[in-house]
Amino acid sequence: MVVSLGATPIAVGDIRGYGDWVQGPALPQSTIDLGSRSEPNLELLTELRPDLIAGAYGYGLDQSLFTHLAPTFNVPFYMSKAAPYAQAQQVTLELGEVLDRRPQAQRLVESVDATIADARAVLAKRPQKPLCVVSMFDDRHVRVYGAGSLLQDVLDRLALTNAWTGATNEWGFSTVGIEQLVAVGEAQLISLDPIPQHIKIRIDRSSLWANLPCVRNGQVRTIPPVWPFGGLAAAGRFAGFLAAA
């Protein structure tokens, strides 16, 4: 989110994970690894003397750990009942304020809105089936995204129907056995990369998977990584990938 406002972070947690699961926007080469996202190295942070420490506090990382090191900025995703997309817009503007990059923040909000509007126009030209967005970690289970997720908000803005109407947790997803995908019928399955190679091989061998209505007719589409708990940049990426092809 800092990067998408054109600012350069000195350091972030888990650079390798960012590269595999988030990808865009790309981190500058100079970014220093702070260690794991759940335990960013405080001694290193002290040494770097940052101007601002932005993080999603509250999920195990207490804001108070950082307040005496530098000003902190909380990214309160999924903390209130507001829709994730609206929250992402709100937080982007706030962060723009804090970073003294208000115009850039405004521009990001508008450009992602525009990306989504463009994608919607492209998608409106062809008939659209309902979609079902999943991450595959295992050959017997999928994580399926539904009500309350950022991806759901983007689908709504694209006027696409999410075929998964089942229950989801507070973060807008649910881990279910693949047999439950029968519930989405002939919907088009959107699978988020990365999928481990050995899982791909084993899934292809599953007699149940191959015969699911949403798989049988060659409906599975794989798109590049989108961080489902991300901000506007992730939302824009998702809309762009759906409209491409």
């Binding site: 970690f137 295992d138 056995g177």
Partner: peptide
């Protein structure tokens, strides 16, 4: 952490099947 989701699922012992 991000690469072990499969192991967490597997560790909890699920009987879900995807065929014979």
């Amino acid at each position: 952490r991000e690469y072990t989701e499969e192991l967490f699922i597997w560790q909890s012992g699920s009987l879900v099947q995807n065929g014979d």
